[in-house]
């Protein structure tokens, strides 16, 4: 009796999950199916996958200048992430190793940054950039990407570093290793799970962020993928442009989707570890 109850329960559960997942991804399916039509095909987008053509993709590819925008995104994201990992591990090292009021103060100083929204401080930041004569180039948003990633990353690294035993460092100290050697050769490699978490979570927001590039990049040739999408803003009201718009949406998201497909385990563990340790 009981077994049967569990079985029918499972069937209901499967049914609910399938319906729920179908609802969740239905907008994405429609976008995908429409993007595979020729631009002139104006049939209702609800008729799924009735044509397979890359024509819309070719036009979107040219209109958004995909190779340039992709490269801009890649360079700024990679550069920011490398610097965040370096700066955040360095900052977390003394904060977690020295027990003092200063460490505690610095710890809360960095965490406090988590609650400050970018839109709130963007005016004074832009003023500071102006005063320091920082030009608007494709690299300018990197300063803000790094700054905004510091609170979370430092917080996470400080938490993880507590699990790295002090004894290892003590024996290295007795063997004559200096501070920098201990940090780079012993502590940093042991922080790998935290680094994966920082890289995944921070790369996800930096890659997808359009706000800082919108404020700090002026030439369209220097746009990254998300900010390049702004030129399509008017097209979403116009069904005649939908197929190309949808193709550009997919193109914009494609690098992230491929990264997720390849590194699925790291994504899931990285996100979970980031929140649980934090």
């Amino acid at each position: 009796m009981r077994k049967e109850g569990i079985k029918s329960g499972k069937v209901i559960l499967y049914f609910l999950l399938i319906v729920f997942c179908a609802l969740t991804i239905s907008p994405l399916l429609i976008v995908l199916s429409s993007s595979l039509r020729v631009p002139e095909n104006m049939q209702s987008p609800l008729i799924l996958f009735n044509q397979f053509s890359l024509q819309s993709y070719i036009e979107a590819f040219q209109k958004m200048n995909f190779p340039t925008e992709f490269l801009n995104s890649l360079v700024t994201t990679t550069g920011s992430i490398i610097l965040v990992v370096l700066l955040a591990t360095m900052a977390a090292y003394p904060i977690s190793r020295i027990k003092s009021r200063l460490s505690k103060g610095l710890y809360y100083f960095f965490i406090a940054g988590l609650i400050i929204p970018a839109q709130m401080v963007i005016v004074p930041i832009a003023q500071t950039f102006g005063n320091m004569n920082i030009p608007n180039t494709r690299f300018t948003p990197m300063i803000m990407f790094i700054t905004c990633s510091l609170p979370f990353s430092t917080f996470l690294y400080a938490g993880f570093m507590k699990s790295v035993p002090v004894e290892i460092e003590e024996s290295a100290y007795l063997d004559g290793a200096n501070l920098w050697m201990r940090f780079s050769k012993i502590v940093f490699p042991l922080l790998k799970p935290a680094t994966i978490s920082v890289v995944i979570t921070q790369a996800m927001w930096i890659w997808n962020d359009y706000f800082f590039p919108m404020v700090f990049v002026s030439k369209s040739a220097q746009y990254s993928l998300p900010i390049g999408m702004i030129q399509f803003m008017g097209d979403r009201e116009n069904p005649a442009q939908w197929n190309i718009l949808f193709a550009s949406c997919i193109l914009c998201a494609l690098p992230m989707i491929i990264a997720f497909a390849v590194l699925q385990k790291q994504f899931i563990n990285g996100i979970a570890a980031g929140a649980v340790k934090g």
Binding site: F20, C21, T24, I25, P27, L28, I30, V31, P45, M204, W207, N208, D209, Y210, L225, P226, I227, M229, I230, F232, R236, E237, W242, L245, F246, C249, C252, A253, M256, I257, F260, F267, I268
Partner: peptide
Amino acid sequence: CTFLPALFSAIVVGFIWSY
């Protein structure tokens, strides 16, 4: 399926939902 939307940029999500 449930995580997929998190991979998209807010601007793309905005476009898709405008439709």
